[in-house]
Write a protein that binds this DNA or RNA. Structure first.
Lengths: 227, 227
DNA sequence: GTCTATATGTGGATAGAC
DNA sequence: GTCTATCCACATATAGAC
């Protein structure tokens, strides 16, 4: 109804202003800006996030920021892209040793939850960015990518390294991962709002049990179907 | 590190600029502004939300807005307060007829989910406001209030009207409501990001079963403890 | 209590030297 | 590729008439 919106915004997402980023040093600067933006976002939140603060936080002049990114929007989306790309290593979760999915689920959820609590502001920042992507037309695919990355990540943590993954296992893994993600997201919001760690821990336990039950059920169904 | 932040912001939350709101017509205008703010927020999102758009959306002049609210922040928080206050009637969920908690859980989650899907933008707006409150220092109590309101609401939907509510039932109700809320919040985010309704519906079914199992387990525990 | 008009600040973005 | 300096639109907020 009122948004002018320049058509180049989508394409400006993943590459710098003109043609840079190809240069060795330039790539580093670009990365510094992204890192600075994330830092500023973690501290002050979306509402207070300005390009000036980002530049300061990154140790870069305002003009430099605009040399690497067409506009604020493309920078913000690049931050989210970066978060997605680095997700797996950020959680530094090795695939659990046990070959029992039930045990793995417990291990994964617990370590996940510890990480979330250690990085409260990062989680808030990420949630704000996701909402932002959902609100920015032409950028909701990014939110989808993020969720698929998490689902894939969880799924691998639960079933990988246990011989060949059958089609059945893959489907079960995806469904289970989706449910785990639902739970973790819900827990994050509720814990940050109520910051009653005792009650939230109860939620974690409930989620573990529920997820384990889900696996059991899906496996039983698959066994039946296979005959 | 850098926020000036006027000390009156907290108190400006729930009452207008000077002393108004006491006048019959004044209260209506105040309500119109809040409604307009919510509408503008639902359509454009936080990032694009300006006081001018709010005023326009409310059919009020910009100065009028500032007559009723000290600043943008206090208006935004008032919107969230309003959302909390009207929550119960918004969901227009009567207490289900059945006296079986298991059935009630299913009914409540399903109708809840239908409502959520009908009001996607409202849910996004509410989530954005919650994040905003969490980020606004001195306002996170509002986020807590919101969650407690939901927990209370769900809890009542599941156990009310079934004779006197024992202490046991109350505790169980709260724990169950908390878990339902976790699930619904997680579902909202995931569905809006992936907008794959098929997969999300699977999540709804899983949540119903998991919640029902939780009630069973908690009731069994309570029975054991009672001897 | 609501309006018109305006002050004041700050944000995103660009020009152009180096 | 990074800087200094600056433009300009627009956002929040206020003054003061009605």
């Amino acid at each position: 109804m009122d948004e002018p919106r320049r058509p180049s915004s989508l394409h400006g997402t993943s590459h710098p202003g003109k043609i840079p980023g190809a240069t060795r040093k330039g790539t580093e600067t670009r990365a510094r800006i992204i890192k600075g933006a994330l830092e500023a976002l973690e501290n002050g939140g979306m509402e207070a996030l300005t390009t000036r603060k980002i530049a300061a936080s990154a140790g870069v002049r305002l003009a430099t920021l605009h040399y690497y990114f067409d506009n604020k929007e493309s920078l913000l989306l690049a931050v989210l892209e970066d978060l997605i790309a680095d997700m797996a290593e950020a959680y530094q979760a090795d695939i659990p040793a046990s070959h029992d999915p039930q045990e793995r689920i417990e291990t994964v959820i617990r370590s996940m939850w510890r990480y979330v609590q250690r990085t409260r502001n990062k989680q808030l920042a990420q949630t704000e960015l996701t909402l932002y992507a959902l609100r920015t037309q032409g950028a909701d695919w990014l939110a989808a990518r993020q969720y698929n990355a998490y689902i894939d990540f969880y799924s691998k943590l639960i079933f990988d390294g246990m011989g060949e993954i059958s089609e059945d296992k893959k489907q079960i893994g995806t469904a289970v991962a989706r449910f785990m993600l639902i739970g973790i997201d819900g827990l994050i919001l509720q814990n940050f709002a109520l910051h009653n760690d005792g009650d939230t821990n109860e939620g974690v336990e409930t989620l573990i049990i529920a997820t384990q039950d889900l696996v059991r059920r899906l496996q039983a169904e698959a066994r039946l179907a296979a005959g």
